[in-house]
Write a protein that binds this DNA or RNA. Structure first.
Ligand SMILES: [Mn+2]
Ligand SMILES: [Mn+2]
Ligand SMILES: [Mn+2]
Ligand SMILES: [Mn+2]
Lengths: 234, 234
DNA sequence: CTATTAATTTAGACTGGTCAAAACCAGGTA
DNA sequence: TACCTGGTTTTGACCAGTCTAAATTAATAG
């Protein structure tokens, strides 16, 4: 029943909400979906009429429980499709997003279940983003950014890399920094450049804009350093 | 660039054309797509404006070469997706159609190629319908119906079963009559009931409406008995 | 408390797809 | 030839989604 557009709005609002919290403004949504503010105003009004979000004029919107469920269903389909493309059709992590963005609105529940089963209930998509299970319980463990989690000399495992900016993603994949790989922070400069050593011994200089998009878990022995939130594109 | 609706119209017109030949009437299209005649008139006008078909008012339409190419692309995607669902996700031939009907409009060329590759360039979908290769060269070998091809006592291989009527399809699949299986015509009654023996020795009585939807190749030794055309749903 | 301004909403318009109701054609019938 | 009648087109309407331009609001600066 919901259209592609409706699902894309819900997904976008969900993402913004979990990164920056409600209320989500018209312009934030417009920015995320590349639509004009006027268009967004009109759409959030219909979403509000359908009970998917609550809205306060000139303030912003917030998903209702129903809206959040609907959003999570889309996110689940999106990530499952991404995982599927990477696993079964040999897509690169960089190629997976656009295809999934179209397909996410058109696969049946049946399809979703079967994909999930064939992949043996994967926990994360190729970017490391957690895949909500069928009951939509959502851990959504974001992890902490490189600099937040790891002091120079410390080592950790990449949990997730943001898929938001294709160029950043490309950069990271080229550097061999992908989910599950091990990295050690060698150095952090005052202007934000982070030098890391990957498991194969190579060193890479990551500009701040890139380093901030890498989320890691510290290599055991010390508890979770938290904070450094950011919800991903999917 | 073409929308879902445009693609569905082209596919429908292509199918009708290859079953009954041009011109294809407004009501035929309306029937096939479950739209009102008024809607169809309006759509064929825009299709005509785009050069995808030629139209003579009150007479009907016929695909142009460009329209036929576009239609074949959709058919190709549809059948490839059906094959993929059956092969990789373990769908039954009866379950495959609706999913493919939605997805066919949203998979990229890249996806199509990869699926084709992973399936090792399959010749036919789960209903036996030929899959046009990337160059869209189209054999579209329809095969002959059971009674047309096989006299009682003769044996043949099922080439294709019509996917048009879900109930008929279900009946055939349940009886174990699917593409590549061997059947022998045991008997044909005056009122059209065809009794066949399948390879496992079981006999099945097929009402005329069912038998007419089974296409076979005679078991070697004699050339192709032809005729008995019918284009399928995909 | 007022004036400025940036964000937001409203107003009005357009496209694509659809339908119901009314008008219209074309081929066959009397 | 004049009339039916079934299929077809026309007309006018509507919904979803989008945009531009104009009006409005809220927050901030003076
Ligand atoms: Mn999408
Ligand atoms: Mn992702
Ligand atoms: Mn379709
Ligand atoms: Mn088929």
């Amino acid at each position: 029943m919901p259209t592609d557009a409706v699902e894309d709005y819900l997904k976008a609002i969900y993402r913004i909400e979990s990164r920056a919290g409600p209320p989500v403004s018209t312009s934030q949504i417009a920015e995320a979906l590349d639509k004009t503010p006027a268009t967004v105003t009109s759409m959030v009004e219909t979403l509000s009429d359908r009970g998917l979000l609550s809205r306060e004029k000139y303030k912003g919107v917030e998903l209702t429980p129903a809206g959040e469920v609907a959003a999570l269903e889309v996110v689940r389909r999106h990530r499952l499709i991404e995982a599927f493309l990477a696993e079964q059709l040999d897509y690169e992590p960089t190629e997976v997003h656009d295809e999934a963005d179209a397909l996410e609105h058109h696969v049946s529940e049946e399809f979703t279940r079967r994909v999930e089963r064939v992949l043996d209930y994967p926990a994360a998509d190729p970017h490391g983003d957690p895949i909500p299970p069928a009951d939509l319980s959502t851990p959504e463990d974001a992890g902490a950014t490189l600099v937040a989690a790891l002091a120079p000399g410390e080592r950790g495992t990449v949990a997730r890399i943001s898929d938001r900016d294709p160029d950043v993603l490309e950069f990271l994949v080229d550097a061999g920094i992908t989910p599950e790989t091990t990295v050690e922070v060698v150095d952090v400069t005052s202007f934000g450049l982070v030098t890391v050593r990957t498991s194969d011994g190579d060193e890479h200089g990551l500009p701040e804009a890139v380093a901030d998009r890498v989320y890691v878990r510290r290599a055991a022995e010390s508890g979770a350093a938290s904070d450094g939130q950011e919800a991903s594109d999917a």
